[in-house]
């Protein structure tokens, strides 16, 4: 029973984790992408459509990530190349993504397919207590955990990651040093979009294996809150995703078990936790400073 609940918490946390990691990289480079929800839902539609046509979950997932990446490329051209306002462009991407996904998915509504296969290791998966939790998830879950490690390693252990963070903190100085501000930002945005698309594909291929318009139901926005909650650190994204996913799942289980917990209050928990985390972290860290990348959301226009 406890294992079953933990398995569902991990499943609920996975899309948040993947999308938030992508957004974290983009924001670390100084680009605020409010189009996560749109890229996610487009990834869900495209992923499902391709998976149905080809019969391959793997191709579907790749197509989902590709669709997110394509929308992110448009966002990148607008904000990084043409220096358009990031907030307005991001919101436009969300609306565009929701609309496009309806178009892409129109003829796939009402179809269903088998969910993505779960790992099944002889002996290990059947271990009591932790078998299914550790060895019985689907591929997306393991990929999400690998992404956490990969993003952490990239940002804190590689030169390219250092450059990316430096650009996110001060694009003028890094530009003066001869670093390719716009190239790095554009790639970070693409990575963020691909992650959002992949998270969407997880929803339509593994979590609830069908396509329905607007099926992301606001998870892109939760991913955005999660990045802030995690104070732009990958390992905290992992913890936060478990907390956010756990809050949702546990309140449903509490209700089913007949515990008199107020569901509405628990549903609001992720957002309250984000506000609380922001307050605590900004009090604790630098005096009057912010934890956010200093150049986050600011438009960069290079001098010619």
């Amino acid at each position: 029973m406890i294992q079953m609940v933990l398995v569902t918490i991990v499943a609920a946390a996975t899309p948040l984790m993947i999308a938030a990691l992508g957004e974290l990289v983009a924001e670390r480079a100084g680009v605020l992408n409010l189009g996560v929800e749109g890229m996610m839902v487009l990834g869900a539609a495209t992923g499902f459509a391709v998976a149905v046509e080809t019969g391959s979950t793997l191709l579907g997932a790749a197509a989902g990530a590709g669709a997110g990446l394509a929308l992110a490329a448009l966002f990148g051209i607008l904000t990084v190349v043409l220096s358009a306002n990031q907030v307005a462009s991001g919101l436009a991407m969300t609306i565009l993504g929701l609309g496009l996904s309806g178009l892409v998915g129109a003829s796939y509504v009402g179809l269903k397919r088998e969910p993505a296969p779960h790992l099944n290791l002889a002996g290990l998966t059947d271990l009591p207590g932790i078998g299914r939790l550790v060895f019985g998830q689907d591929g997306f879950v393991y990929l999400a955990f690998a992404l956490v490690a990969g993003v952490w390693w990239f940002l804190w252990r590689t030169r390219a990651g250092l450059i990316l963070r430096a650009i996110g903190d001060d694009h003028t100085a890094t530009h003066a040093l001869g670093l390719k501000v716009r190239r790095v930002r554009f790639r970070a945005v693409l990575f963020g979009g691909a992650c959002a698309g992949l998270a969407g594909a997880y929803l339509s291929l593994a979590y609830t294996p069908f396509w329905a318009p607007a099926m992301t139901a606001g998870r892109g926005w939760i991913a955005l809150a999660l990045v802030v909650f995690a104070s732009w650190r990958p390992l905290r994204v992992l913890a936060g995703a478990m907390l956010f996913g756990g809050a949702t799942v546990l309140q449903l289980h509490a209700q089913a078990a007949g515990l008199g917990l107020p569901g509405q209050a628990l549903s609001a928990l992720p957002y309250l936790a984000t506000i609380l985390a922001l307050v605590l972290l900004s009090l604790g860290k630098r005096q009057g400073g912010s934890l956010a990348p200093a150049a986050l959301g600011r438009v960069f226009t290079p001098h010619r």
Binding site: T8, Y207, T208, F210, A214, A217, T248, L252, A256
Partner: peptide, 15 residues
């Protein structure tokens, strides 16, 4: 309408 949450609720009830 939230397929993910509705599925979680179904799992919780079945459990």
């Amino acid at each position: 309408f939230d397929p993910g949450k509705e599925a979680e609720a179904a799992k919780a009830l079945l459990a």
